[in-house]
């Protein structure tokens, strides 16, 4: 049985509603951040936070405007925005930045490059090994020998 108004729940209509909801959620998050920062400004002398307060009024006002007039983006593709490979990349990057100062530049960079390449295409491990060794050495030469940037040596190298 076809219910009244069911035809309105077609894909484009559904997408439109999603866009409106997401934009409003973004506006609410922005307002929450704005309130939190405003609350933080109360612990400072007024002259120190005059400019941030002025900005917070503007920020809050714009958030309210986005809440009232949402739908400034055509659609959201959540599968693309929050895809598995993107999460994995961010996770690897965070892991690398945590391990890098503890273990040391060479070992971490070499291993990170191999894991990164292997995760995204499981072929040619030999090529990956050569690439990772050359890239790590090249970066070492450019930054440490050329620009005198001393990378952390860590526990290993």
């Amino acid at each position: 049985m076809v219910r009244a108004g069911q035809e309105r729940c077609s894909a484009p209509y559904h997408e439109e509603v999603v866009v409106l909801v997401i934009d409003r959620v973004i506006a609410l998050i922005a307002l929450a951040v704005c309130s939190l920062v405003y609350w933080a400004t109360l612990s400072y002398p007024p002259e120190v936070v005059a400019f941030p307060k002025f900005l917070l009024y503007v920020f809050g006002g714009l958030s309210v405007l986005i809440f009232i007039f949402p739908g400034q983006q055509k659609s959201y593709n959540f599968k693309k925005i929050f895809s598995k490979e993107k999460f994995l990349t961010i996770f690897l990057l965070i892991g690398y930045t945590i391990v890098f100062p503890i273990v040391g530049y060479f070992v971490t960079t070499f291993i990170f490059a191999i894991i990164y390449l292997w995760i995204f295409k499981r072929q040619g491990l030999g090529q990956y090994l050569i690439y990772s060794a050359i890239f790590s050495a090249l970066m070492y030469l450019v930054f440490q020998k050329g620009l005198y940037v001393w990378f952390p040596e860590g526990l290993l190298l």
Binding site: L93, T97, A113, Y116, F135, F143
Partner: peptide, 11 residues
């Protein structure tokens, strides 16, 4: 390309 750029951003 992706791994090269990622490492360059960190360095």
């Amino acid at each position: 390309l992706a791994v090269s750029v990622t490492l360059l951003t960190v360095m």
